[in-house]
Computed example of a mutant assay.
Amino acid sequence: METKVFPLTCTPPLLPSIPFQANTRTVYFKPRSLSCCAAMRKSTAKTKEKEEQLLDGMPKEYYDEEWQAQQREKTKELERLRKQEDDEEERMVENYREIGIRLKGYPEEDVKKAKKLVSSFIRAEEEVEEKIEEAAEKGELTELVLMVIWNRLDLARRDDEKDVIRSLDLLYRRVETEILKREATPAMRLLNDLLNMHDGFNDDEWMKECRKRMIDTFPREDPFSILAPPGFDIDQHAGPVRPPLEADDILLRVDFVREVDALLQEVRQEQSEEQIVEGFDPESVASKLKQQEKQRTIHKVEALLDLAISLKW
């Protein structure tokens, strides 16, 4: 049985021809979109309701734009402070690293001994003077010991530990004085002892004590004492004829006068180059007090020099 295929054709319907009219006016009708606007309003209202439901537990200030601006400023300030703290911490770490590097030029064993010695000074408390003098006699007070104390003092200053700063500063000055005393000449050691004898009040009594100390220290300068050693009886022609073993440590008055006079000339030259401080700010007042104290010390040294020049047995 044969099947026949019938092709389907779709042809557009024929529109009746409309004659063109020249005066015909075309009118466009704008579609009404009220339904779309209503839908958008409903959607916005639903979104707002959802936001209000989500932010229901927030404080009232949250909706205030000024409050939010203040919070943003606070956040910026906190970030700035945090950055400032980080920079300060980094600077302190760098400073501590720099302090630790100072001792790298010394032998490690010597550094350990110096640290141990400084620790013993700190633990000694009231017996620190005896400890310092004992270490000085053993020759243990060196520049390295001063460097160790200075490092600890520097760390205390950076941490603003006032009590520790005061204690370490006194310890540093005491050890430095002892080192200078051991390295000084006999004349300078005597001058230091004479200055320390002053109690700060009675100058006349101090001068009497200094005169007595000078008489006990300087050898007599009369002809008999020059020709004969101490202890030799010039009348009986008996007594030791050899000078004592400590004759090399004898301090002559002329040597004392010469060294003290040279010291005064050097100090006066430095003093003439110093500028006069004016003002009443803390630094100026401290500088003035320091200059006044220095001037009083110079007057004391001048008085001791005059006493040594006019000394009579």
Rank of each mutant, 00 (worst) to 15 (best):
A69Q: 15
Q70W: 12
Q71P: 04
Q71L: 13
Q71S: 05
R72H: 09
R72W: 08
R72M: 12
E73L: 07
E73D: 06
K74Y: 10
T75H: 11
K76S: 11
K76A: 15
E77Y: 06
L78Y: 09
L78S: 10
E79K: 05
R82Y: 10
K83Y: 01
Q84F: 05
Q84C: 03
Q84I: 02
Q84R: 07
E85C: 01
E89K: 14
E89C: 12
E89G: 13
M92V: 07
E94G: 11
E98M: 08
I99T: 04
I99V: 13
G100E: 14
G100Y: 09
R102G: 05
G105M: 10
Y106N: 06
Y106V: 02
D110M: 14
D110H: 15
K112Y: 10
K112G: 06
K115L: 03
K116W: 06
K116A: 15
L117F: 03
S119G: 13
S120H: 04
S120Q: 08
S120F: 00
F121T: 03
I122G: 00
R123M: 06
E127T: 07
V128S: 02
V128F: 01
E129G: 05
E129V: 12
E130V: 06
E130G: 09
E134T: 13
E134I: 02
E134N: 14
A135R: 02
E137H: 10
E137M: 11
L141F: 02
L141H: 01
L141S: 01
M147D: 09
M147G: 02
V148S: 00
W150I: 00
N151P: 01
R152A: 07
R152M: 11
D154P: 00
L155F: 13
R157T: 12
R157Y: 05
R158G: 03
D160S: 08
D160N: 09
D160P: 00
E161C: 03
D163V: 07
I165V: 10
L168P: 04
D169E: 08
L170R: 11
L171R: 06
R173D: 12
E176N: 09
T177P: 00
T177G: 13
I179Q: 10
L180P: 01
L180T: 09
R182I: 03
R182P: 00
R182F: 10
E183K: 15
A187Y: 02
A187M: 04
A187V: 03
M188R: 13
L190A: 01
